[in-house]
């Protein structure tokens, strides 16, 4: 179900833990599966569980507990905006509103062309760079004023 490249990455994660503790690699394995497939379907979660020799329900519990896993399809780009207090004080909420207006969607919605999903994120640990947002769980964008947001949107094609 996953490419050999993804499996190789998962194997590298498994090697970090004691031989009888393969399950410790489940968070990384789910993240790798999500990166390859775009989101985590039940099949993908079951595949990861089988690969690590754990019960599917145990892998599903992990996938549904941590909020960076997507259990439903998302757009090509997932944009998570931090609106927590330190960001809010210096424009995080305004940045979210600006994005909603620009994209014509609300939080947890995807643009009709399937390009961008907008999410309200929780503290990203970068409050000094507020407003901050993350693209696809990976790329952190700092000091996002209207001009910077416009630039980012133009880039996400």
């Amino acid at each position: 179900m996953l490419t050999s490249e993804s499996l190789k990455r998962i194997d590298r994660e498994i090697a970090k833990y004691p031989a009888d503790q393969k399950q410790s690699a489940v968070m990384a394995a789910l993240a790798i599966a999500q990166q390859e497939r775009g989101w985590l379907s039940s099949e993908a979660i079951e595949f990861v569980a089988a690969y690590l020799g754990m019960a599917p329900i145990a892998a599903y519990e992990v996938a549904s507990f941590y909020n960076m896993y997507d259990l439903k399809p998302v757009g090509k780009y997932k944009l998570s905006v931090c609106t927590n207090l330190p960001c809010m004080l210096t424009g995080g909420v305004d940045a979210g509103e600006y994005l909603k207006q620009k994209l014509g969607i609300g939080y947890n919605e995807t643009t009709p062309d399937g390009l961008i999903t907008l999410k309200e994120g929780e503290c990203m640990g970068a409050c000094g760079d507020a407003p901050v947002m993350i693209v696809n769980n990976r790329r952190m964008c700092s000091w996002m004023n209207p001009e910077q947001i416009d630039k980012l949107l133009a880039e996400l094609k």
Binding site: Q21, S24, A25, V26, A28, F65, Y66, N67, N137
Partner: peptide, 22 residues
């Protein structure tokens, strides 16, 4: 070990559970 979005894992025993893959 890379977390995946859960504030509670900053609590030390939750963090251990998380490393154990739970």
């Amino acid at each position: 070990h890379h977390g995946y979005g859960a504030y509670i894992c900053g609590e030390e025993t939750a963090l251990l559970e998380s490393i154990e893959g739970k």
